[in-house]
Design a protein around this nucleic acid. Sequence first.
DNA 1: TCTTGCGACCGTGTATACATTACACTGCTC
DNA 2: GAGCAGTGTAATGTATACACGGTCGCAAGA
Lengths: 243, 243
Amino acid sequence: MSTRAERVCTQLRDSIIRGDHVAGSRLNEVDLAAEFGVSRTPIRAALSELASEGLLDYMPNAGYSVRTYSAQQMLGIFEARAALEGLATRQAVENGITEAQRALMQRAIDETEAVLSRRRWEADVTVFWSHINTWFHGAILEAAHNDHLAWLLRKSRSIPLVYSSMFRRFDLNRIAKAHEEHVTILEAISQRQAVRAESLAREHIYKAGLFVVERMREHEMQAAHAAAMARADGSTPAQPVAS
Amino acid sequence: MSTRAERVCTQLRDSIIRGDHVAGSRLNEVDLAAEFGVSRTPIRAALSELASEGLLDYMPNAGYSVRTYSAQQMLGIFEARAALEGLATRQAVENGITEAQRALMQRAIDETEAVLSRRRWEADVTVFWSHINTWFHGAILEAAHNDHLAWLLRKSRSIPLVYSSMFRRFDLNRIAKAHEEHVTILEAISQRQAVRAESLAREHIYKAGLFVVERMREHEMQAAHAAAMARADGSTPAQPVAS
DNA sequence: TCTTGCGACCGTGTATACATTACACTGCTC
DNA sequence: GAGCAGTGTAATGTATACACGGTCGCAAGA
């Protein structure tokens, strides 16, 4: 059995990624303590951990709030992540991947093809593909044998998830594109083409970033438009943007 | 005035980087609380923060200990850092650096030349050069306009400092080499050669990493040799490696 | 002699009470 | 009416007491 702080941390992380809390909203320690049925002590430990993961903002004497990222900042995250995933892929080739790792990546590709061949949209496909994606990139990261790199990537992967949940569904075309890129990357890795694999992985992440950023920009435009409309009406916006 | 947790965190970080605590040694919360004259609460907050920076290890129900890195792991850190600093340099060129940033980098170069021209070793030169180095890379990072990248790099820069403090003095030749690389990097940035600047920065960090790793390998060899000698004597080593 | 169970102690995990800070509101003054 | 000082309140920061888990040592049995 784990500690209460760990359990609170896990649940809160899921809750934030699920989008239960409005971006920028403050997290009241007493309320959270009541909600989770524990004291403030484990709550504070969990909040501290989530802040270190970049999901929360912390200001001394002002507490924690759900961290917001602009489209520009999100692009920066994906650019950094692209560099790191590229490095991981190159190191994986240089070290040589195990048969188990190659099999896992192949399985991820096969499963995706099975989903795509059905040509229809199911509610849980998004979640399923998210898992498949995790396998694929997890196998590469494992083969890279670089703990620190894995640590940095963990810190870069969770933040975009918060915003992914904003979009109701993933574009099937986007998955198909990403799938093709996975196939090519595995091909390059299998042929021990380190530099090519690095470039492909880097571009793969960058494209995924562009997709998310595009959606965020649309969202920001809509929000700005709605705010302008509300100002023109002389009425207050239905949903205030910040607290 | 800041919180106690912040002050404890800052002091403890310096203390760890200074090498006051044996690598791998456990940090007792009660002892630390007595040492800093505060209760365990701010101590725990500080320890949590330092663990998130990679300086400490945390195990539930077993507390915090000074994290140790093998030469192999340190190489991994520098490889990741090289990729990130390379990206930062490229983005700095793409965004264009301000005159103030260029001036700061030039000043770092001038100051280093002043130190090197003296051709003699002073005790505080290591500290001074460390600051100069921070200016130079800080200016690049600022020009990159990428918050997340800066955040990731902060997490990658502090860890090697712990091991740098193990070596009594920096090699003057090493500083001279790094200086030449700085000159070349600034040249590439000034001429807006993004790809060249990225490659140079990446190699610059990688070389610095090789230097540190080399020293660590020597150190590991010596430790292994000493341990073997002690075993041959049938006596216990003077300084136990682990707790 | 090795193994295994129990128990005591040490240290972390958690709850709670109190201290302190920040902010908002009120009332006063200019 | 505007600005500022003072006060009250709500939240976070800190101290402390207690709960709980883990480990080490000792002893009893195989």
